[in-house]
Simulated scan of single mutants.
Amino acid sequence: MKISIIGATGYTGAELLRILASHPAAEVLYITSESQPGTAINEIYPHLTRFYSKKLVSLAELEQIAKQSEVLFIGLPHGHAMEVGRKATAANPDIKIIDLGADYRFKDYAVYEQWYKVAHTHKEAQAVYGLTELKRSQVRGASIIGNPGCYTTASILALAPLVQHRLIDLATIIVDAKSGVSGAGRGLNLGAHFTEVFENVKAYNVAGHRHTPEIEAVLGELAGEDLVISFTPHLIPVARGILSTCYATLKQGVTAAAVDKAYNSLYGDEYFIRLLGPGGYPATKNTRGTNFCDLGWHIDQRTGRVVAVAAIDNLVKGAAGQAVQNMNVLFKLEERTGLDNAPLYP
């Protein structure tokens, strides 16, 4: 597969390159950067030495890039991918686009515009939401895929069985999620400086994080009705990882066995979902560097609540790994191709 990456110098772009380096069916043609064109990628990311010495090019070459590529990964900030996608599909109607940003994640463009404060310029795109385990059949026939966010991936996977099987009161969902600092990106940001993050944990964007409507939209689709959740993200002093702890009130009469059955029914055959079962405690270190999502759940008999916990690597299952997983589905490859590695530990 002829692959190009638009916006290859961020953490997500670098992670894509790392994964694709060991993908037996992938050939990286072009990588772009508007800030450092002409620079070899291994000068920016020395860990990629021996794997890549390719030089970055500018988006001015987008038409040529699109015509020569079968797959275009886009790793740009929101508001930029939709213009790239529109121009790329005009140049090559057969190209497959996987956007790792937010521009193609929403069916309702009004929701996107409300939360991201940007007008959507590619509304004719028939994009598919790329949470592979829940949308695999749609991904197979897609031309444009909106890769889910990292908080979103962990939270939706944790809650989907409970919502799909109507085991919880949908009005009681609370998501408490924590992210490693790489989720903030590679740009200079005071809040991500070592002295700000070290030995510190803090909440941010309370009641206003942009992954909130994304979680609501996908869970609402599973439920067959609109729902509203409480979502609070936190920054923790680690480089990688998402831990999402999700709470909801169980419906009257729902048993622990019914909860167990729901998780096993939805995910029992999913390779990248590792079910730790009732009483399981997912940990970010156990998924580090991999495309796995570890899930555990607990029944609080005293409060009548279920607590579902998910752990992922935000740069892999929460970004680049899931993008490659979607690419494998698109091209009818074994889904694990390029992704079947054990976690880094300790």
Rank of each mutant, 00 (worst) to 15 (best):
T121C: 11
W297E: 07
D108N: 14
E124C: 03
Q301C: 08
Y129R: 00
R186G: 14
G183W: 01
R305I: 02
T212N: 03
C246H: 05
L134E: 01
D108P: 06
Y271K: 11
G141T: 08
E335Q: 07
V259A: 07
I95F: 00
R50M: 11
V316L: 07
A8W: 05
V329N: 02
M1H: 06
D103I: 00
T290G: 02
I174L: 11
W115A: 06
T337H: 03
N314A: 15
N42D: 15
H193A: 08
P93H: 04
Y52G: 09
T212V: 10
K123C: 12
T337Y: 02
Q301H: 15
P77Q: 00
L76D: 02
S179Y: 03
L131P: 00
A60R: 14
I156G: 03
L243Y: 11
A323Y: 04
H211A: 12
V228D: 15
A319E: 07
A21H: 07
G338S: 09
D169F: 01
E199M: 09
V329Q: 02
Q68S: 15
Y112H: 04
E43G: 03
N92W: 04
K251T: 08
S35W: 09
F106L: 06
P237C: 00
V259N: 02
A203C: 13
Y116L: 15
A8Q: 06
A26W: 02
Q126C: 05
E63D: 12
A14G: 13
I74F: 08
A203N: 14
Y112K: 01
S182V: 00
S53V: 08
Y345A: 05
G338L: 02
P282E: 10
S69N: 07
G180T: 08
A142F: 08
E221Q: 13
G183D: 05
A323W: 01
R302H: 13
T249C: 09
D269Y: 06
A25F: 05
G241I: 04
K251V: 05
E221H: 05
V128F: 05
Y345S: 07
Q322N: 15
I74H: 04
T337V: 05
Q36P: 06
V57F: 11
P278E: 15
V71Y: 00
K251H: 14
